[in-house]
Simulated assay, not measured.
Amino acid sequence: MSNTIYIGYEFKVSPLQPAVEILIAELGYAGFESFVENQDGVTAYIQKGEWHQDILKHIQILNSEEFEITYKFNEIEQTNWNAEWEKNFKPIMVDNQVTVRAPFHDEPQTKYDLIIEPKMSFGTGHHETTHMMIQHILKNDFTDKSVLDMGCGTGVLAILAEKVGAKSVDAIDIDNWCYINSLENVDRNNCTRISVYEGDVTLLYERTYDIIIANINRNILLSDISAYAGCLNENGLLFLSGFYQDDILTIEAECNKYTLNLKDKIQRNDWVALTFNI
Rank of each mutant, 00 (worst) to 15 (best):
K265M: 13
S226V: 12
D141M: 12
N181Q: 14
K263A: 10
M93R: 15
S146Y: 00
T79R: 05
I172R: 01
E37Q: 10
L249P: 01
W81H: 05
A44T: 03
D175Q: 07
A25L: 06
S121M: 10
L203Q: 07
T275Y: 00
Q245N: 07
F243H: 02
P103Q: 03
L138M: 04
H131N: 14
R207D: 14
H127W: 04
V201T: 09
S241D: 06
S223K: 15
G31T: 09
H58K: 13
D224G: 05
H127L: 00
V164L: 12
A273W: 01
D224H: 14
D175P: 13
G28S: 06
F32Y: 10
S168P: 01
N88W: 09
S121Y: 12
E65Q: 14
W81T: 01
S241G: 11
S168Y: 01
V164I: 15
E107A: 15
Y258Q: 08
M93N: 15
R101E: 12
W85V: 10
V98F: 01
L238A: 14
C191I: 07
L114A: 06
D224Q: 13
N82Q: 14
S195R: 09
Y6G: 06
E117P: 04
I116W: 02
D144R: 09
N82T: 10
N140K: 02
E206L: 09
G153H: 04
S121W: 08
T259D: 15
I172Q: 02
E198F: 00
M150F: 15
C152Q: 02
D270C: 02
E117I: 00
D246L: 11
D200M: 05
G41P: 00
D187C: 05
N176I: 11
G41K: 01
S34Q: 11
D246H: 12
V94L: 11
D173P: 13
D247I: 11
I76T: 06
N3F: 12
I194T: 09
W177V: 09
V94W: 07
E117W: 07
G242F: 03
D149P: 10
F32G: 04
L138V: 01
L221H: 09
F32P: 05
E128W: 04
I213C: 04
S182I: 04
N185S: 05
I159P: 15
L56V: 10
L138P: 02
G242S: 07
P103I: 03
Y29R: 03
V186Q: 12
V201W: 03
D187F: 00
N277Y: 04
E206K: 11
Y209F: 15
Y112I: 01
I194L: 06
R101W: 10
V186Y: 06
Y205S: 14
K111D: 08
A161T: 08
F67T: 04
H127K: 09
I115N: 10
L23E: 13
T4H: 02
R193L: 12
A214Y: 02
E66H: 00
Q135K: 14
W177E: 13
Q109A: 06
H58R: 09
G8A: 13
E65N: 14
A161Y: 12
G155E: 11
D210V: 02
L237G: 05
L23C: 07
D187P: 00
E10M: 00
G49L: 08
D113Q: 11
H127E: 05
V42S: 00
I61Q: 06
Q267I: 08
P15Q: 03
Q47K: 11
R193M: 03
Q97F: 09
D144L: 11
